[in-house]
Design a binder for these strands. Structure first.
Lengths: 225, 225
DNA sequence: GTCTATATGGGGATAGAC
DNA sequence: GTCTATCCCCATATAGAC
């Protein structure tokens, strides 16, 4: 009975720390954000971080864990649906890519913009913590998608396929890490309004063509044209 | 006369700081690397950093400045050569991409592996310092390459082109930031040996196909197939 | 130009009262 | 669960002797 009224906002504190951390990490980076920054934005006490989480590293992991589960669920659900629709046949390449990309890139309530930027940055961030995060959370869907890709492109050697997956992840990560501004920036001011909604369709079209292309420009001996 | 014998290693110190900083930044990140780490690896005194450079931020900028000049020179020289060869006509898409990518991705004495990783990370790193670095150094070649791309793909609307450039930079950056390990990682241990030499040819082939593809999968109204 | 020594600040984490 | 106060470490940067 006393347990029901014990705290003013039982869940709120932990969530608010996660929200504030997510935003600040996205804006400034992980190391550049202090726990004091986080707690002051969240409106909670400094010591609350080490009470609810054990360390700053654990907080960072929690920030990722909260979002990536649902994202991977959405990915696999979409892939399931496409595979059911294909009825035993291979899922078309574009659909495999869509299942992989749309749940992250598309604007949804489940994935706030701040986290999208973090997601893109996780791949490139140095340090054991992030390689661990990527392996833990991002590796889950890997097996399913690798298999789906191989079925969509049965003639593609595995190594070639993996390089292309690598390029795809790079394009995706860079897009997530902050594309509207960057497209504007590289235009040198020529393009003013950039719609992020088209990003997924553009990305799918771009990488799908890359997947279908021969893997190298020059055969192997590097003879000049 | 005394000026000739004044110091044991006149140029060495500054260069050794740059070398050590470049390596450590690539391994651990910028904020994660202390000046003490750098000076101890370089075998110089801590105070030497603030003597030769003024601050850590200035050192970071110097690390980039030292390499990017030559890289952009190589890019533009290669583009010049292709344009001369084209003799007034448009440079083929693959060659434009090669001039942009090969000087960075290809293994050369001018671009050590450690800096390649930094190069890839500069785009995604948060903070004003890095947006400034990218604008200063990376924006130089931008105008020339944008023009060459537009001539290679005259029917492509500018916005579409810029999105594709963005995807290309993402794939490039991700490749530079550490691909051999990552291709191995996403293979789940299936692929053991990955040759980095093929990276440029693979990358060019991949993105060239993307550039030639229609910009979107679905027209615009987002009607389902 | 190079060193020692130190100033100065901020960081993560914790002890212990409430 | 939440707060205050504080410990302790490590960071960048500089002053001043050599």
């Amino acid at each position: 009975m006393e347990r029901l009224t014990k705290n003013k906002a039982p869940v709120a504190t932990k969530e608010r720390i996660l929200d504030a951390a997510e935003e600040l990490f996205a804006e400034r980076g992980f190391r550049e954000t202090s726990l004091r920054d986080i707690t002051s934005r969240a409106g909670v006490n400094l010591a609350a971080v080490n009470y609810h989480f054990q360390s700053k590293d654990a907080l960072i992991q929690a920030v990722f864990a909260r979002r990536i589960g649902p994202i991977n669920d959405a990915r696999l659900a979409m892939l399931d649906e496409f595979e059911a629709r294909a009825g035993g046949g291979a899922v078309p390449l574009e659909d495999v890519l869509r299942a992989f990309l749309e749940p992250v890139v598309e604007d949804e309530k489940a994935v706030p913009p701040s986290f999208r930027r973090l997601f893109g940055r996780a791949y490139v961030e140095p340090g054991d913590l992030f390689t661990k995060i990527v392996q833990q959370h991002f590796g889950q869907a890997r097996v399913r998608f690798a298999a789906a890709l191989q079925r969509a492109l049965p003639d593609e050697p595995l190594v070639d396929l993996l390089w292309k997956v690598n390029f795809t992840i790079g394009a995706m990560a860079h897009t997530l890490a902050g594309s509207p501004e960057r497209v504007r920036a590289i235009s040198g001011g020529v393009v003013e309004s950039v719609d992020m909604e088209s990003a997924v369709e553009r990305l799918i079209a771009f990488v799908a063509a890359g997947f279908r292309a021969p893997s190298r420009v020059r055969p192997a001996g590097k003879a000049d044209a």
